[in-house]
Nucleic acid binder design. Structure first.
Length: 471
RNA sequence: GGUCCCAUCGUCUAGUGGCCCAGGACACCGGCCUCUCACGCCGGAGACAGGGGUUCGACUCCCCUUGGGACUACCA
């Protein structure tokens, strides 16, 4: 255990986009640092030269920013710290705690296969352990592990975990291409960066004993470990593309709000009584890594949607309005001015769960399209001709944003003609929106404005006139 | 196969030996509200994997079984 200020880190490998699971691990790590008033460090684990890409790193950083998981140090790239790792490998070599190995991947693979066939544990058979080899082409450095005893550690989430050293084998520290491996670099960096709390996915639990052995060999202080449960797909297997979108960026593009994703993710394996909605500050105040549960959670897109809807409904309309243009453009719609978008959002937000849905559900606010033929056919009946004519006459000189005036005008029309609003409402809705489902008629009228609204009503009227002439 | 981990409604979870014939949320069903659809409100159905212990008393503690997951790479 370390004392002093808390320091946590998130250490993604840039081999793809930021995954939902990784995002939650990052969130927990970030929350723990913020809760404790400590520092959050971002470190890019790109020691796999084959699979790591610069684009991935950039994508991940952008996703982190979008989520609001700001880091205090970094990003630190491991690929730029190779000399450091090699010097520690040399130290282990010098102290006889590691050794060179000339076994080829092919030989190893063959041995693994036969061991498996014989029902034995496929671990390295120590062929080169006592050969006293030096460096050479194709050679790797292996850690020399004790063959007896137990290695254990206390996990803040899982409790004490203990493994028989006989289960571990002399794993590789330095690859034949000179690149260090994960288990080595993660220990060196966490130690050198004074990470006090290693918070990561529990798929790393089995690696931890190996790392503990490295900490001991290098005489580093052990950090606190907290292995957070995995996020599973609906079939309880590791969450993957098969289950739908898994990247943070995909949710952003589908019109999800970062606070919704954060709120959803934090409730996976963590809770605070019966509370479901958490502001960022509440999370920082309330989050305790020790309250994280032990079992895996299934990702439930429906609940995420519900949360997103909650934040759409309650969010600042101005901010939402600023986010909308991207989605408008994506649909090929023109981008109206801010105050218009803002009014649209207030109109539709109760019935739209994502920013994308705002655009789709409220498309008629942005583009002018004639209602589909079948709707015109069933709603623009000739008997409505007169009421529509009166309606237009009475509102075309009104400011439609004066809702009480408009409602008054419609009401007097209803009183005089004796028809029910129910009868007039749907045809009006179809004329105005081209749909049978929309926000309230008076809201639509107000937002659309006199010119647009009356224009569409007149178009419906023309259809009725034409129809009555033909019959 | 071996090792490690996990196990409350379909899902996320509350529950830390009696407050629980188990609470909340999403989804689902019904009703109310109503210009459509939503929102909102009210109500409903729905779980302690199984078996042994421990205990006056187990969802809560222990063991076994079953089920699930992770790891077992010159990936991280």
């Amino acid at each position: 255990m370390k004392d002093g200020t808390v320091r946590t880190r998130f250490a993604p490998s840039p081999t793809g986009y930021l995954h939902i699971g990784g995002a939650r691990t990052a969130l927990f790590s970030w929350l723990h640092a913020r809760h404790e008033g400590g520092a959050f460090i971002l470190r890019v684990e790109d020691t796999d030269a084959q699979r790591s890409t610069k684009e991935s790193s950039l994508q991940i950083l952008k996703a982190m920013e979008w989520l609001g998981l700001e880091w205090d140090e970094g990003p630190i790239y491991q690929s730029q710290r190779l000399d450091i790792y090699r010097s520690y490998v040399q130290k282990l070599l010098d102290e006889g705690k590691a050794y060179w190995c000339e076994c080829t991947p092919e030989e190893l693979e063959a041995k693994r296969k036969t061991a498996l066939e014989k029902g034995e544990k496929p671990k390295y058979d120590l062929t080169c352990r006592s050969k006293g080899l030096g460096p050479g082409p194709g050679r790797v450095v292996r850690m020399a592990l004790p063959s007896s005893g137990f290695t254990s550690f206390d996990d803040m989430i899982k409790g004490r975990i203990s493994v028989d050293n006989a289960e571990l084998d002399d794993f590789i520290l330095l690859r034949s291409d000179g690149m260090p491996t994960y288990n080595l670099v993660v220990v060196i960096d966490d130690a050198l960066m004074n990470i006090t709390h290693v918070i990561r996915g529990d798929d790393h639990v089995n690696n931890t004993p190996r790392q503990v052995l490295i900490y001991e060999a290098l005489q580093f202080d052990l950090p606190c470990f907290a292995h957070v449960p995995m996020i599973l797909g609906s079939d309880k297997t590791r969450l993957s593309k098969r289950h739908g979108a898994t990247s943070v960026t995909a949710y952003k593009d589908m019109g999800y709000l970062p606070e919704a994703l954060v709120n959803y993710l934090v409730r996976l394996s963590w809770s605070h009584g019966d509370q479901e909605i958490f502001s960022r500050q509440e999370l920082i105040d309330l989050f305790d890594i020790r309250d994280v549960g032990k079992s895996a959670a299934v990702f439930n897109p429906e609940k995420l949607l519900w949360l997103n809807h909650h934040y759409i409904k309650t969010g600042d309309p101005d901010r939402l309005a600023r986010l909308l243009p991207d989605f408008l453009t994506a649909r090929g719609y023109p981008v109206p001015d801010h105050s218009y978008i803002r009014r649209v959002i207030v109109d539709v937000r109760e019935r739209t769960k994502t920013l994308e849905e705002i655009v789709d559900f409220g498309d008629f606010y942005f583009i002018d399209r004639e209602p589909p033929a079948e709707l015109k056919e069933s709603f623009f009946k000739p008997e409505l001709l007169q009421p529509f004519r009166m309606l237009i006459e009475r509102i075309e000189n009104l400011d439609l944003s004066e809702k009480t005036a408009v409602e008054g005008a419609v009401k007097s029309l209803l009183d005089e003609t004796g028809i029910k609003f129910k009868v007039l409402a749907q045809p009006m809705r179809v004329a105005l929106t081209g749909k049978t489902v929309s926000p309230g008629i008076f809201e639509v009228l107000a937002t659309l404005g006199t010119e647009r609204a009356v224009g569409r009503l007149k178009r419906a009227l023309a259809y009725m006139e034409q129809k009555s002439e033909n019959t």
